[in-house]
């Protein structure tokens, strides 16, 4: 059996990257002659989540419940996942390559005394089980052998496209109330403040996305980019550097650990085009890169490019649009 840790959003639905992980698990299951796939979720699943997992071909949905799961503790989640793995003697334990997914799988691997592969893109053989994963910030790939059982790994965001199964699974809910060792609750989230409103919906459905990266320069460097976004009736999408530095909110992030967008036109400004960013924007129909560096991967992979300083190019574009409108 394959166990997939499935993360849910505030509405209780499975997040896209977890659905991708289940999709990946299905290709593994198919290669292995139809090994069943069970999901582990935290908290009582909504009816909508159960339907969603059934559509993805999941056999059983193990719900970790009880006070120990009221707030996040990586060790507690891992003990719950391992309980399911042991009871069912699963050969694979996996999750999406999110912060939570990587963290919980690392706990699972450490507790089970096995290896773990982070950010897997594909598998190339079952015996020995061999995966290919991202290393060196995406600049290189590593072929890695996972000889241990269970094989523990995470799937890089957007490495595969989330797709429902040809045949639905039963998605039979099994409510688990595991005993959690108090030691596994010492490092636990004690408060969560002001959830950022998730406004990524408009980003994911936008026809035009204006992108901004480190080249924006500072939190104050976005005025022209926001004006262009408005003139094109689009959405703003940013690189991880921009959200890490706190220049813009996380829901605007495009990429492997952000949203995947598929606009008619994506206009990345001052974004180098690292593989993790590309994972989120590669399905744009056309890309117009604005960058000072003609050799930046985003420029060489784009459909169109302007070589120059975004702080000069973008205001000039805005002025040209306004001029044509007026005339």
């Amino acid at each position: 059996m394959i166990v997939v840790l499935v993360e849910t959003d505030l509405s209780g639905a499975a997040v896209e990257v977890s659905r991708e992980a289940v999709t990946f698990a299905r290709s593994l299951s198919d290669a292995g002659g139809g090994v069943p796939i069970d999901a582990v979720v935290v908290g009582e699943p909504s009816a909508a989540l159960v339907d969603q997992l059934a559509a993805y071909g999941v056999r059983d949905v193990h719900a970790l419940t009880g006070e120990a799961f009221d707030s996040f503790a990586g060790a507690a989640w891992a003990s719950g996942v391992l309980g399911v793995r042991t009871a069912k003697n699963a050969v694979v334990v996996m999750a999406a390559g999110t912060p939570r997914g990587n963290e919980v799988m690392a706990h699972v691997a450490a507790r089970a005394g096995v290896a773990m592969a982070a950010n897997v893109l594909s598998f190339s053989g079952l015996s020995p089980f061999t995966v290919t994963r991202q290393v060196v910030g995406g600049a290189a790939l590593e072929e890695m052998r996972l000889a241990d059982r269970p094989a523990v790994f995470t799937v890089a965001g957007h490495a595969v496209e989330a797709a429902p199964a040809a045949a639905a699974g039963g998605a039979h809910v099994v409510v688990e109330r595991p005993d959690v060792d108090p030691a596994d609750l010492v490092a636990r989230v004690v408060s969560t403040q002001a959830p950022e409103p998730d406004l990524s919906g408009s980003l994911k459905s936008a026809k035009v996305v204006v992108g901004a990266g480190r080249g924006a320069g500072s939190a104050d460097g976005f005025a022209d980019l926001l004006e262009l976004t408005e003139l094109l009736d689009g959405s703003l999408g940013v690189s991880r550097v921009v959200t890490s530095l706190g220049w813009r909110p996380h829901h605007e992030q495009v990429g492997q650990t952000g949203s995947r967008i598929s606009p008619d036109l994506y206009i990345p400004c001052g974004i180098s085009g690292a593989i993790q960013h590309w994972a989120g924007c590669s399905s744009a129909k056309a890309i117009l890169a604005i960058n000072t560096d003609a050799e930046a991967p985003m420029v060489t992979k784009a459909t169109y490019a302007v070589i120059g300083d975004l702080h000069e190019v973008v205001p000039a574009i805005n002025a040209e649009i306004r001029r044509r409108r007026a005339g």
Partner: peptide, 9 residues
């Protein structure tokens, strides 16, 4: 590390 080999994309 269980590495078989590195590859460049």
């Amino acid at each position: 590390p269980g590495r078989v080999r590195l590859l460049l994309p």
